[in-house]
Design a binder for these strands. Structure first.
Length: 282
DNA sequence: CTGAGATCCTGGGGGC
DNA sequence: TGCCCCCAGGATCTCA
């Protein structure tokens, strides 16, 4: 599932491959995912030059020369695939991703961006660039987990406010810290050696400090590995990431903890699975 | 403010 | 082998 590291991987690759190109055409077969409407979207993007690509939490923002931006959320199974004349026949484009291409951008120079999404939860919206921050789903975000604004002070103030909640729930809430999803909340808590259902109020100062460092450490490391392809994440080349080989606990229920060999367990926190080692994490 | 549950989708896994 | 059911998951919305 695309979380911060996966989205950052896509954004970095798009920056390299499509900035400077002009959008020549747009096609879609799933209008529900296109806002404000297919016609409005087309008007904003066709003919515009791609000026830059950036990330806000798990959102991808493609800034266009004409004063508009395209905001994209990949949700669980969205993929952006960049195909050009050289790689169009690559084996990496095998199913299943090609089967679920619902939108396609034709760019200058024969390049295409194909948007595949098996579950059809992903969406994109064309808005004036000045209004990106005012988009409801962007405005609702807390501080990005890898931005300098996410610091110990912010984290401490947040935990002071959320003392009654479970730490696993706080990490997942995008309104507090943007970018952490189900994979990296479990991984960060494992690295910090803290149980996911600990009430925030029970965390000692050294545990808070450890968790803050663990969040940044895990996310940065996952970005370096081009994300986790536990399920179906693929980068813009159709290639899986590499961080799944370095997961400590996520998706490993019943398997031995890499640190101590104890069986990894799973519980529900905030309606979602949280994985942990009952021995390493306190 | 908080948490629970439903919703949006569809492939895949488990059970029979 | 085949069918049915349920689950996964990000985010939003409604309801208690």
């Amino acid at each position: 599932m695309p979380e911060l590291p996966e989205v950052q991987t896509v954004v970095s690759q798009l920056e390299r491959k499509v900035v400077g190109r002009t959008i020549r055409g747009f096609w879609t077969e799933w209008a529900k995912a296109v806002r404000p409407s297919v016609a409005g979207f087309e008007r904003a993007v066709v003919g515009a030059r791609i000026a830059g690509v950036r990330r806000i939490g798990k959102h991808i923002v493609i800034d266009l020369g004409g004063g508009h931006s395209v905001v994209i959320h990949l949700k669980m199974t969205g993929h952006l695939l960049v195909k050009d004349r050289e790689n169009a026949k690559s084996e990496a484009w095998d199913d299943p991703y090609n089967r679920f291409i619902h939108h396609r951008f034709a760019l200058s120079g024969g390049t295409r961006i194909e948007f595949s999404d098996m579950r059809k939860f992903a969406w994109m919206e064309a808005v004036p660039t000045d209004d990106v921050e005012r988009l409801k789903s962007v405005r609702a975000l807390g501080v990005d987990a890898l931005s300098p604004r996410f610091d110990r002070k912010y984290f401490n103030a947040l935990l002071d406010r959320k003392s009654g909640q479970k730490i696993g729930a706080v990490l997942l809430d995008q309104a507090h810290i943007a970018g952490i999803g189900n994979i990296y909340r479990s991984e960060a808590l494992f690295v910090a050696a803290i149980l996911p259902d600990r009430p925030v109020a029970t965390l000692a100062m050294d545990e808070r400090a450890r968790l803050f460092r663990a969040v940044r450490f895990v996310l940065r490391r996952a970005v370096r590995y081009r994300g986790t392809s536990d399920g179906d994440f693929r980068d813009t080349d159709g290639l899986p990431g590499g961080f799944q080989r370095h997961l400590g606990v996520y998706g490993r229920e019943g398997k031995p903890c890499p640190a101590c060999g104890t069986m990894i367990r799973r519980i529900k926190i905030g309606q979602r699975s949280a994985f942990f080692c009952p021995r390493c994490q306190k």
